[in-house]
Structure formats: structure tokens, C-alpha cells
Nucleic acid binder design. Sequence first.
DNA 1: AATTGTTTTGACCAACTGGTCAGGTTGAAG
DNA 2: CTTCAACCTGACCAGTTGGTCAAAACAATT
Lengths: 216, 216
Amino acid sequence: MGGANKPTSKREGMRRETLALILATAERHFADHGFKGATMQAIADEAKLPKANLHYYFPTKLELYRQVVERIFNIWLDAAESFDTQANPEQALGTYIRKKMEISRSHPYGSKVWANEVIHGAPIIHDYLETTLREWTDSRIEVITRWAAEGLIDPVNPRHLLYMIWSTTQHYADFSHQISTLNGGVPFNDAQWAQATECVTNIILKGIGVKRGDPG
Amino acid sequence: MGGANKPTSKREGMRRETLALILATAERHFADHGFKGATMQAIADEAKLPKANLHYYFPTKLELYRQVVERIFNIWLDAAESFDTQANPEQALGTYIRKKMEISRSHPYGSKVWANEVIHGAPIIHDYLETTLREWTDSRIEVITRWAAEGLIDPVNPRHLLYMIWSTTQHYADFSHQISTLNGGVPFNDAQWAQATECVTNIILKGIGVKRGDPG
DNA sequence: AATTGTTTTGACCAACTGGTCAGGTTGAAG
DNA sequence: CTTCAACCTGACCAGTTGGTCAAAACAATT
């Protein structure tokens, strides 16, 4: 749209592709084996690149990991924005829950990396938690508190409501192995994802006494 | 009680103590760093034992890890039993949720190790998932289905209800770093744990339309 | 065609880590 | 006191892994 973009040269294009390939492959490996368990060699092999090439684009393993985590955080931000503070509880929370379920389905590896990171004390993302996440959380707590004061929902502790939404939705990504095992060894299909989303949304919204738009 | 127990010799006592010390220390390290990230040397150092001594009691790192996981599974079984299939929904689910919250508080490291294991594809516990966990889950699904049929709760999908209970309660252990960060950097105190438990129980029970024993 | 900066790569290294082992120590039993 | 098995430990080893480097291949520019 805006400026006069130089026509992407062959070099630039390849660079972009290689970077994306490495990041995607690394994400899977970090998700499946953890930071220490994932090896540069294994990532390189799967990406069909020599290991030295990885170090050309990402000087250290930690730097590669950082960028993987950063990508994930942006996805999280994307979902965060869908929590519309202007909407009514049913719409704001419903949309947010649905969005989080979609992310659990479309970015299971990212979710696992994030979970791993938090479980192990969040050494890398600690700053995000203290700044961006905390601000977002505080602002939503305010909104939820207002809803409760206005009688639109029960007077629940907003913090625990948010934790419930986070844990329940992310569970479908983070614990996918357990879930598919209990699902006869196969992952959820479209219908099952839809049902999970509906079920989670319904229980939570009813659980906090949301006044539904369509009482039937 | 039973047979004629030989009076525990000094040897036996020391052995028990050492085993317990190693297992407890290892649990923390596996929780904080993952299987690969935890090192025998670090575990030995914290337990103030020479590394070779660890290998005397646990021939390999994998064997040590297995026994850590096994202990955790027994704790899980303990909670599982508290889901009384004879009781009414409010009591059965309420007791179960409360028990799980207690475990999240008393065994945060164990919960983290378990989460880690599942996130990474459950290589060690896969058998448990397919046998014990599946059987338990199936039996509870039956009970919940019956409750729904009898009109004691809404016709929710029992599977998702169980997932919600698991994820919500375990979240307080697995994501404790995130939670304490959002709690001003300090872990929950007694009152906060009590409120979390109550809040989670209330939302879930109300969310599935449990007919409460005491309607007020 | 020559030049220049970027990218690619095989070979290599130092640090770390799980595991071994031989020899020493200790508690219990006779 | 002697004997013996259980227990403890410092020193060591082999395999793995993150990271380096010099040289080669390559794309763009003049």
C-alpha cells in the first residue's frame, strides 16, 4: 500500500522463507522436547539445513527460542484484543473464549511452548507477565467488576474467572496427547472441536450467571 | 497390625530417608527444568550427596524419573477415589474439585512434572493414560451421564466437564508462577486458596445446572 | 567480467553430562 | 574380634551438544 517497496529480490524472499521455516520447525521441537531437550542439530535436520546455517540466522539457541516465544506472545495479544470491553458480557466473554479455543486448535505447539515456559518459572517471558499481561488483566478485571456491579453477572472474583477461561481453553492444546488418547487415540475432528467450544462457553457463561441475550 | 515387623535397623531407616530425599529433590528439579534440563549433578548437589550415590539408588536418570512420576500418579489416584459415584452431583463433584485444589497446593511440583510429561507426548505415562485413566474416566462419564438423564444436572458432555475440572484445578499448580506474578509477586495465602477453591467450585457447579442441596 | 557483500557448509572444539568402577567405609551378625 | 554384605565416593570415560571458523558458493551491482 504505502511506500515504494523495492521489489523483493530473490535473496530477500529466500531469507524470509528460511527464517519462517526455522522458526516453525523450532517451535515444534521446543514444544515436544522443551528448551533443553530440543537440539539445534535435530531442528536443522528436520528443516533440511546444515546446523551451521541455523547459527547464521540465529546466533544462539536462546535467541532462537526467544523469537519463537515472541511470535507466540503476539498470537496471545491477538486473542487478548478480541475481549471487547465495550460489548456485553455474553458477547465479550463468548468471543474471547471462542477465539482462545481457535488458537488452541491452530497453534498447539505455540501454546505448549508457552505453557512449558510458565511451568518452568517463565525465565524468558517474566517481563511480559509483569507488564503487558498484568495491564491487560487489570483492565479486564475492572470491566468484569463493573458487570458484576451492574448485575449483568454474578459477583464472582474476576481473576478466577480469567484463570478458568485461560486454563480450560489452553488445556485442549497443552494436553492434546491426553485428550486424543482418551478419544480413542485420534485427535478431535471438526464437530468435536465445535462441541468442545460450545460446551466450555456454555458452562462458563452459565456458571457466572450471565444474563443471556436470548432467554428462549 | 499385621506380621512381625523386624525393628527397623539404622540401615533401613537411613535408606528410606535417603530415597525420600532424592525423590523429593528430583521432583523439584524435573518440575523446574524438565527431564532433559534437570541434571543428576544438580539433584545430587541439592540433596548434598555425591552423584555416584544417586546412581547407587537409581541406576539411571530415566529410572529416577519413572519413580518420581509413579509417586505423582498415586497422588492422582488418591484424588480420583474422592469422586464418589454414589453421592449426589453436588457432593461428588464438589469434593472432587476441592481435593484437586488441595493437591495443586500441596504438590505443585508433582503436578508440574505431570503436565510436562503430557505436554511432551506422555512418553512414560502413556500406558497409565490408556489403562487406568481411561477406565476411571469412562466410569465417571457413565455416572455423569446418568445424572443428566435423571435431570440432576444439565445435559452437558461429561468429557468436557471432566477436562474443565482437571484444567482449572491443575492450573493453580502448573501456572503458579504466572498466578503469583499477577498476585503482586507473592504466592496465594490461605484465604486466597480458599476463595479460589470456592469460586471454581461454584462456577462449575452452577455452570452445569447442579440442583443444590441448599437452595436458600 | 570483475567486484563485493551475503549466504552456505563441513570440519572442528570445548564444555557438559550420564554413567562406571575400583577401592574404601560402615553396620550388623556370628 | 572377625566376617561379610551393604553402602559410599572420587576419579574417570565416552557420547552429546552448542557454538566457531575458514573457505566455498552465490546473487547483485558496477
